[in-house]
């Protein structure tokens, strides 16, 4: 039941006042069993949350991947300044000449540009923006397959 439940929770979550009862009816089990299993999956950390994923572009948000080349001795401080921005959702140091990479999401392209300019003034590091031109895949739900064609 776990596997089928997980699939339904991800791909066919019922829009209803009592969604877990609907799931139970479809699976032919009790609502209590569904709720028990969902709680278990949450506790185990398999499910992060149940809710909505917003399409940022649909509401006019501008997102871009940014990178910069920071002198090693300044990396922690610059990373901290970058992370402090609410517009930054992901921020990682990486083993490359461009050693700090982060994603920026702002209500408009202009707003994003202003944030980057302010960040450059604050840190003295040049920020490079690499906005997406095409998207081929986003937010994949993971299949538990381990097949790689060699």
């Amino acid at each position: 039941m776990q596997k089928q439940l997980l699939d339904m929770l991800q791909n066919r979550f019922p829009l209803s006042e009592t969604p877990f009862l609907h799931l139970a009816d479809e699976l032919g089990v009790t609502e209590g069993e569904v709720i028990y299993n969902v709680r278990l999956l949450l506790e185990q950390g398999v499910i992060r949350r149940i809710g909505a994923i917003i399409d940022a572009r649909k509401i006019g948000y501008y997102s871009t991947l940014c990178a910069c080349q920071v002198p090693p001795q300044d990396l922690e401080a610059v990373a901290k300044a970058v992370s402090a921005l609410p517009a930054v959702t992901h921020n990682y140091s990486r083993d490359h000449r461009y050693n700090l990479w982060f994603t920026l999401s702002a209500p408009s392209e202009e707003a994003a540009r202003q944030l980057l300019t302010a960040l450059e003034e604050q840190t003295g590091v040049k920020m490079v923006s690499m906005p997406a031109l095409r998207m081929y895949k986003i937010d994949a739900r993971f299949e538990m397959s381990d097949q790689v064609e060699k």
Binding site: Q10, F13, S16, Q44, I50, F142
Partner: peptide
């Protein structure tokens, strides 16, 4: 509660909500 469900349905129909349901944690998987 019906109001809330209908708002979620409307946002989904307009594509503002890309997906509604369980979001998994990759690391844990």
């Amino acid at each position: 509660e019906a109001d809330i469900v209908s708002i979620i349905a409307e946002l989904k129909a307009k594509g503002i909500i890309r997906r509604f349901g369980a979001i998994l944690r990759h690391q844990q998987a």
